[in-house]
Every structure is written in structure tokens, then in C-alpha cells.
């Protein structure tokens, strides 16, 4: 298995030169913290004070004793389960509608505005809206409606981005394919399901995957709107990690929680990538 060692050419050296900054950046700011988080998750690592190795205790605590972690996990999944489909459906519907509108560009800008305004500002305004809505108790103070209110605000904030992605894909649909389909008599729902959706399936896949990853990391909206309450009705996984790290000052526990979240996201994304072979069509 001996291969001759090629002499280094100038090109290779300059390639190395170009790549080094980003490799160093990746190593220093991504790989090192990721590796460090693994190490920390096996320690009792208070922000202030001495640390000690505790093996799997942090994970055991999160999955067994922590009164909030499993609820946070459930809330995160409920949020994702509601937010992702609503977001995709709304974005898709509007993208198709806008495609035929005379004022396409105006609508695109209008619907994209929430996506580019800072999330915190959006959440604060929505909180004021919910307060102005009144009600006894307020939707944000009622354990049955608080999470739904968070979903509603998040969909409003998030669908604009997907709509732009879908809008671009819809514009790119090949006219010849669409014409062929209409000559074959495909109209309405049939045309949408069998021709148009397959044509934009790469965009759908991209949007579904990214939206799902973002949804599993939801933090700002519940943090501003409800602070996890009432009770722990709107506490999410990232809030749990934040609470462990910056309120309980237990960095080991926070790292363990973050790793569990990472594993969940990795798993869900892997399933999506395996599943995409069945429904995503790339033009070759």
C-alpha cells in the first residue's frame, strides 16, 4: 500500500495557507468548545468553585431526578410538532399564491419583514398584544394555552424565511414540465401533488430540515413571552440548559443537557436524510 510521496507544489502550499485560518477558526471556536463540552458533562463544574469528576451523574440527574428536564423535552417536541408543519404549510401556501399575484415582490417583502426583525423585539410586541387581549387568566398565564401562544408567535416570525425559499423554487419550476403535465390533463390538486411538489422537493427538504433544527433549539420566544411559566408549561430544552448554566451556575449539568439536545437533533436530522431518498427529486 505504499504510494509515492508527491513533491509539494507551490499550489498545495498556497492552498494550505488559505485553508489554515478557517481550520484554526473552526478548531478554536467550534471543535474545541464541542470537545470541551463533552469533558465538562462528566464533571460537577460549578461556575465558581472547585470541579470534580462525577462520571455519568449529570446525565443521570437530568433523565431521572431533574423535575424539569423531561417536561422541557416534551414541551420542545410539542412545540416542534406544531410549529414545523404550520410554518411549512403557511409558507408553501403563500408562496404559490404570491407566484400568481401581480404584487409578488411587495408581498415577498412584507411577509419577510418579521423574519428579519430582531426576535426579541417581535416577542416583546407579541407579549403586549397578548396582554391587550386581556382574558382571565391571560393566554400566557394559562397552562393550557401558553405553549400555543408561543407557537402562534413563532410561526408568524418564522414563516417568511421559508416562504422566500419556496417562492424561489416555485419560480424555478420548469415551464416545459408544467406544460407537458397540463397537456396530459393534470390540473388542480393532482398537478400540485404529482408535479409541482416533486419539482420543489429539494427546497421542501431544505426548509423542513432547517426549520426542525431551529424549532428544537427554541429559546427566545418562550423566554420573553412566558419565562417558562406558568409552572413549567413552556420550558424548553435550551431554556433548561440556560437555567442550569447561568442561573444554577452548574456548567457540567448545562453541558450534559446540551449534549442530549445535540444527540436528539442529530438523530432527527439523520432520520430526515435517510427519509429524503424516498421523496426528494434532484434534477440531474
Amino acid at each position: 500500500m505504499k504510494r509515492p510521496v508527491k513533491p509539494r507544489t507551490t499550489e498545495q502550499w498556497s492552498a494550505l495557507g488559505f485553508v489554515t485560518p478557517s481550520v484554526l477558526g473552526l478548531g478554536l471556536f467550534t471543535l474545541f468548545p464541542v470537545g470541551m463540552a463533552v469533558v465538562m458533562s462528566f464533571f460537577r463544574w460549578p461556575m465558581l468553585g472547585t470541579r470534580e469528576f462525577v462520571g455519568l451523574d449529570n446525565f443521570r440527574y437530568l433523565l431521572g431526578e431533574d423535575p424539569d428536564f423531561l417536561t422541557a423535552l416534551r414541551n420542545t417536541f410539542v412545540f416542534t410538532g406544531l410549529y414545523v408543519p404550520l410554518n411549512i404549510l403557511l409558507a408553501l401556501g403563500l408562496a404559490f399564491w404570491i407566484h400568481r399575484s401581480r404584487w409578488a415582490n411587495l408581498w415577498r417583502v412584507l411577509f419577510f419583514v418579521p423574519a428579519i426583525t430582531p426576535m426579541v423585539a417581535n416577542a416583546v410586541i407579541w407579549k403586549l398584544l397578548f396582554q391587550a387581549l386581556g382574558g382571565e387568566p391571560n393566554v400566557l398565564a394559562d397552562g393550557r394555552t401558553a405553549l400555543l401562544a408561543v407557537v402562534a408567535m413563532s410561526v408568524w416570525q418564522g414563516f417568511g424565511y421559508n416562504m422566500i425559499v419556496f417562492s424561489a423554487a416555485v419560480n424555478e419550476m420548469s415551464p416545459s414540465v408544467l406544460e407537458a403535465a397540463s397537456l396530459d390533463g393534470a390540473t388542480g390538486l393532482r398537478r400540485l401533488v404529482s408535479v409541482q411538489l416533486p419539482l420543489i422537493s429539494p427546497a421542501l427538504f431544505f426548509a423542513a430540515t432547517m426549520t426542525m433544527i431551529n424549532a428544537l433549539q427554541v429559546f427566545t420566544q418562550p423566554y420573553i413571552l412566558t419565562a417558562g411559566g406558568p409552572g413549567n408549561a413552556t420550558e424548553t430544552l435550551v431554556m433548561n440548559v440556560y437555567q442550569a448554566g447561568f442561573e444554577s451556575r452548574d456548567l457540567g449539568l448545562a453541558a450534559a443537557g446540551a449534549w442530549l439536545l445535540f444527540a436528539i437533533i442529530l438523530g432527527v436530522t439523520a432520520v430526515q436524510f435517510v427519509g429524503q431518498k424516498r421523496w426528494v427529486h434532484y434534477e440531474s
Partner: peptide
């Protein structure tokens, strides 16, 4: 006789 906070935040 009192206003209840609208949310935990």
C-alpha cells in the same frame, strides 16, 4: 381586587 400578572415573564 387585584390584577394578576399576564405572564411569568
Amino acid at each position: 381586587a387585584a390584577l394578576v400578572p399576564a405572564s411569568s415573564s
